[in-house]
Design a binder for these strands. Sequence first.
DNA 1: ACAAAAATAGAATTTATATTCCATTTGAAA
DNA 2: TTTCAAATGGAATATAAATTCTATTTTTGT
Lengths: 272, 272
Amino acid sequence: MVGNAAPQTMDAFYERLRDLGDGLPKRLRQCANYVTANPDRVAVSTVAELAMAADVQPSAFMRFCQELGFSGFSQMQKLFRDDYSQKWPDYNTRLASLRERGSDTPSALLAEFVEAGRSSLENLTHTANPKAMDKALEILKSANTIHVAGFRRTFPVASYLTYTFEKMSVPAILHSGVGNLDFGHMLREGDALIAITFAPYTAETVQLAEAAESRGLGVVALTDAMTSPLTRIKAAQLLVSEIDVGAFRTLSATMTLAITLAVAVGVSRNLV
Amino acid sequence: MVGNAAPQTMDAFYERLRDLGDGLPKRLRQCANYVTANPDRVAVSTVAELAMAADVQPSAFMRFCQELGFSGFSQMQKLFRDDYSQKWPDYNTRLASLRERGSDTPSALLAEFVEAGRSSLENLTHTANPKAMDKALEILKSANTIHVAGFRRTFPVASYLTYTFEKMSVPAILHSGVGNLDFGHMLREGDALIAITFAPYTAETVQLAEAAESRGLGVVALTDAMTSPLTRIKAAQLLVSEIDVGAFRTLSATMTLAITLAVAVGVSRNLV
DNA sequence: ACAAAAATAGAATTTATATTCCATTTGAAA
DNA sequence: TTTCAAATGGAATATAAATTCTATTTTTGT
């Protein structure tokens, strides 16, 4: 049974979805998850298509619509179509107005970071050097153990790289730098190093990279500019420029480039 | 009679429209004008709606479609919907086709991840719940020490949050989960917890969140869907849906939401 | 001005899609 | 385990939309 009125706005829609929370049965939850993940598809699809994509029966999708308070799919789709027409023509204007109404609310801040992240990603597609990536892949695909070094602000990138390698059963070691231990002795012939550092450049990372190079290991450098000390090393140089918001950055582009590299290694080893 | 084949791309469509030029009769030209001025409407409207908007009869609109080489309106709409889908791709479908084509060069993979990231960020601006963010901010701004818990794939997010807090001199502890130690005893009155977990949900994170809640600490949950066990807890629920590329994701949206939260806390404490 | 051709409007029909119904399965409580 | 309610899948039906048809109007050429 339904009882509640149909959501009139997307905000109301998402709110209703949150209210239902985990009280939804399995199939209906599949619908909810699919719709939250692909709201853009709703406006241009039929129930049959959406149901198939969400891996449920059309009737289940109908029940989902009704559970949310709509009379049926058509009414729900209408909401999505109206929203689509509203936002499509002027995304920039919408963002601008979002910024204008107070820049110190969390929502406004979020808009800033999102915008910065989108621009950084846009940049990445243009600046990423395919040759350098091929070279990096060549180094990593045949490596025995892959060492990953990244401290401070790049530590999340290093840890995510290591996690992804682990998930694909690629032998990898995360150099945590805990206790200032010298991990240099762990670098063995046939290994490779991924060194990640941004300004201000961490000395440990640079030293580790130099140590690796001097022992003849393949080095992949993930850094932010040509001025980086890592560019002095003979290595596959991957440059990422990340747009700052104030003194902060989202790491979106860096994370994206990193995981691309990791997955490419997995693919080249037939592990994916 | 038509004779010509249907345009397969939007470029071909517009070219055909130019070719027909002003040789079109009155009503058909009205259609052409309307479609050129409002291409975005075609994907989400019916013939009747478009005809009314262009101030012609539905049958006139049909003739317009056929004049352009389409079998009817449905075929033309399909072109517009496909074009829309290219801007907002269905990632699961695209990944499947990508694998079939075997185009797994690093650059192609990068493009996939970039688009997934951009789309996730776009989603984030719509799904992020301002009320939940305010609630989260309320909890965190007055907290004594902020505990951050996130393991496996969310560990990078947790570590970046902690790094950012540190940088702003906000007391924060990263729960590393190393050695399966019970960090629960570190939760003191007046503290708050940020718990981050994605499917498959890590037991430690959920347990820690439950422990924190039972001691009356403020909890901020950063999770991926309503199916998450964290939604059972009375906490500020921040939902992020991150688009996967295969079994992988870039974490762009999650990182963005996380740093937004951190910086908002810094702002509220006048530390930025 | 007239005939012929083209274009149009609206109704009639066909097709696609949404929606409902009900038999079966699943899951929870006793 | 047994019982009952909830959930589900798939077929059946209703609804809405696309498409075609034809009588009527408008335009064009002579």
